[in-house]
Design a protein around this nucleic acid. Structure first.
Lengths: 234, 234
DNA sequence: CCAAAAGTGTTATTTTTACACCCATGA
DNA sequence: TCATGGGTGTAAAAATAACACTTTTGG
C-alpha cells in the first residue's frame, strides 16, 4: 500500500528530557554515549519510533528502559525538525518532557546506560540540538510549574511544605516567603495531612502531606500562581 | 549513508489549524478534499514534510499555499503519532496552530483549494484524527489567549477595543464587562491610539488602536489575564 | 429626537505582599 | 540550653469585580 508515492520517509526519533529533584537542585538525567554515533559524548536519552508503535508508547518505552519506571509524568514538548539537525541522516525528533521522583528510579538500569543525574548548572555540552531541547524544557518547567501543580511529580509520595518550597526556589532561583507560600498551598485544598512527621529533619519535624488525588485531577487545568507576581514578566 | 539501518522511516505530515475572526465568530479554514485519499470529505490543510526542508518551513509553505500569506502567526502545537491514525500508511503528523487576519487572505487561493471558513459550531466531521487536532487547538487558543496577547493576531492592523472584546467573548463564550476589559487592556501599555475612528459603526465611532510593536515583543511572554478570574478553573 | 454603541469613574471585595514571634527538636 | 528549621497571624497595598451615567452618531 503506497498512497503517497512521491513523499519522503524520514526517521522519527524520540528524545526524553528527564527532570529530578534531590531536595536541593533540579537535575537532568543524561547519558554518556557508549554507542555510535557520537560515542563518548553526552546526550539525552532517546531512540527511534518503531514502525507499529504509537508515539506516546515509544516515549514510555524509552523512559522505562532508562529508569525502570512506568508511571511517569510525561508530556510531549515539541518536535525538532531542522533538515540538518542530525548529520547522519534526516531525522525528526519528538521531544518528551518527564518529571520523576528521583528516589524511585532503578539505579542499575541507569548505570547500565551510562547515565547520570546532573545539575542544570553543571551540565556538559550535548550533541546535535539537544542543548536547545533542554533549554526549551527548562522554559516549559518554569512556565508550567507556575500554572499547574506539576511540582509534586518531582517529590516523593509524601512530602513536606518546606520541601515543596525548596523545589520552587530551585526552579525559579529565587527566595520565597515561607508564610505566604504555605498559605497559598494549603488554600488549594490539594494537600492532605497524613498525620505523620518528617524524620529527616534534625530540628522540628515538618508535617508530611500527600496529594489529594481526586482534586489533583479535577484542578490540574486550573490556572494558578505558585510563583510570586514579581516573576511573571520573566 | 545509513547509520541507523534497523530503524523505520516514516511519513511526516504537517497539518495546519487556521483560525480567523470575522468580527462575530471564530472560524476555521477547512478544505473539502478534491483529491485522494478521502476525496469529498473535510479535513485540515496539510502536506508532507520534504526531504530537505526544515519542519517550520514546511508549515510556512503549506500556509502560504492556502492563504497567500507569508507573515502569519504560527506555533507548533503537537505531534500526533498513533500507529493507525492514517489508514493508508504509517504517518506522523506535526500540527501547527495559525492565527490570521481574516481579511488579508487570498480568496482565490482559498477557492482553488476548495477551502472555506467555517464557524466552530458548524464544523463538519473531519477525516482521521483531525477532529482531535482541532479540539486540541481550541483548548490551546483558550488557554493562551488568556495569558499572552495573541488575540491581536486575529484582528486587522488597526482595531477597536470593542472589536477586541467581541473576540474574547467569542473565544470564551462569555460576556465581559466593558469597563473592566477596557481598563485592563489600556493598562498593558500595548495599545497606541491612532487618532482615527472606526467608520464601520452606525453609531458612535470607536477609537482605532494599533499594537505597540516593541512592547508586544518584550511583553509577549508575560503572564496576563485577559480572562475574568471566574473562567480560570475551566 | 431616539436607538444603539462607545467611553469613563467609584466603591466594595478579594488577593497579595510584607513582616515577626513562638514552638519543637536533637545535639 | 541553644541553634536550627517549622508553624502561624495581621495589617497595608494592589488588583479585581460590580455597577450607572454621559456622549456620539445616523436614521
Amino acid at each position: 500500500m503506497n498512497n503517497y508515492p512521491q513523499a519522503s520517509r524520514i526517521l522519527v526519533a524520540i528524545d526524553c528530557i528527564i527532570f529530578g529533584f534531590d531536595g536541593k537542585d533540579i537535575k537532568l538525567l543524561l547519558i554518556k554515549r557508549n554507542f555510535e554515533p557520537e560515542k563518548g559524548k553526552w546526550s539525552l536519552m532517546g531512540g527511534f519510533l518503531n514502525a507499529e508503535e504509537d508515539l506516546a508508547d515509544g516515549a514510555v518505552r524509552i523512559l522505562y528502559n532508562l529508569t525502570g519506571l512506568k508511571d511517569i509524568y510525561v508530556e510531549q514538548l515539541e518536535t525538532f525538525g531542522k533538515a540538518d539537525r542530525d548529520p547522519g541522516e534526516r531525522t525528526v525528533s519528538v521531544v518528551f518532557f518527564a518529571l520523576i521522583k528521583i528516589d524511585d528510579h532503578d539505579s542499575e538500569a541507569v548505570k547500565s546506560h551510562n547515565a547520570a543525574w546532573i545539575t542544570l548548572d553543571a551540565r556538559p555540552k550535548l550533541i546535535f540540538d539537544h542543548e536547545q531541547m533542554v533549554g526549551r524544557a527548562i522554559e516549559h518547567l518554569k512556565y508550567n510549574a507556575a500554572l499547574h501543580p506539576i511540582g509534586f511529580e518531582l517529590l516523593p509520595e509524601r512530602f513536606t511544605i518546606p520541601q515543596l518550597q525548596k523545589l520552587y526556589e530551585a526552579i525559579y532561583n529565587i527566595p520565597i516567603d515561607r508564610r505566604n507560600f504555605s498559605r497559598k498551598l494549603l488554600s488549594t485544598g490539594l494537600l492532605i495531612d497524613t498525620g505523620q512527621k518528617n524524620n529527616n529533619s534534625a530540628t522540628k519535624k515538618a508535617t508530611l502531606y500527600k496529594l489529594d488525588a481526586e482534586r489533583y485531577k479535577t484542578k490540574f487545568h486550573s490556572f494558578w500562581n505558585f510563583m510570586p507576581d514579581s516573576m511573571k514578566s520573566q
